[in-house]
Design a protein around this nucleic acid. Structure first.
Lengths: 106, 106
DNA sequence: CAGTCTATTCGCATATTTGCGATAGCGCAA
DNA sequence: TTGCGCTATCGCAAATATGCGAATAGACTG
């Protein structure tokens, strides 16, 4: 491993220690942000793989491009199942929800 | 197979032919209703398996029993990802969203 | 029987999402 | 450069979810 990689890893470690160690509420916020980002990215992928623009997908589900853009924004937290299903229906996808256990400790 | 079973099967067949055959918009409504029912049941199972009453789960996520009851109602369509995550967080579950392709025709 | 626990439903205030036009930025091709 | 397509962001109205107390009903127990 070269020096650059080493430095980067250390930086991540330092940041982690400084902001997250022993502060579960920060970790929780991070996880939620990641989850939102995840949904946003899934919508983006579904749309682009279908070869559609935001305006086109918007039209398909009866709304506008700005709405799609908002849904694909990584820091948008307001996703509803209804909206996910509308998008899924337009792109022939079923929306599956699963609760999966989180293992305690680490 | 006994007579009762036979009759029931026939009835289902008749109903299906009468209301759904060749009417995709009805099938669609049915699928959506099923999906909502599914989420409602998942919440119910998660809660009961954790041995909690609606009031207890409500308290855990900072709301009341009536709200939980509404979420567990089969014909409620207003689920948000935010609420599902709150419930998941209280019960140590991560909420996973997946778009899965629907195969055409049948 | 009364009393308790649980769940459901109603009504309404508050909070949040959605709808949508307007605007701006960016990349690209003419 | 100009024009065009695509995306991001803003602002506000409208629609919808949430918060929560009250009333109701059923099951169960004393």
């Amino acid at each position: 491993m070269n020096k650059t990689t080493k430095v980067t890893v250390d930086a991540v470690e330092i940041i982690h220690r400084r902001y997250f160690k022993g502060r579960p509420e920060r970790l929780k916020a991070l996880e939620e942000a990641r989850a939102d980002d995840d949904v946003a990215r899934k919508i983006f992928e579904l749309r682009t793989k279908a070869g559609l623009t935001q305006a086109q997908l918007g039209k398909l589900i009866g709304t506008t491009a700005s709405v799609i853009s908002r849904l694909e924004s990584a820091d948008y937290e307001g996703h509803s199942l209804a909206m996910l299903r509308r998008i899924g229906a337009a792109l022939n996808q079923r929306v599956e929800i699963k609760f999966v256990p989180i293992r305690r400790s680490a």
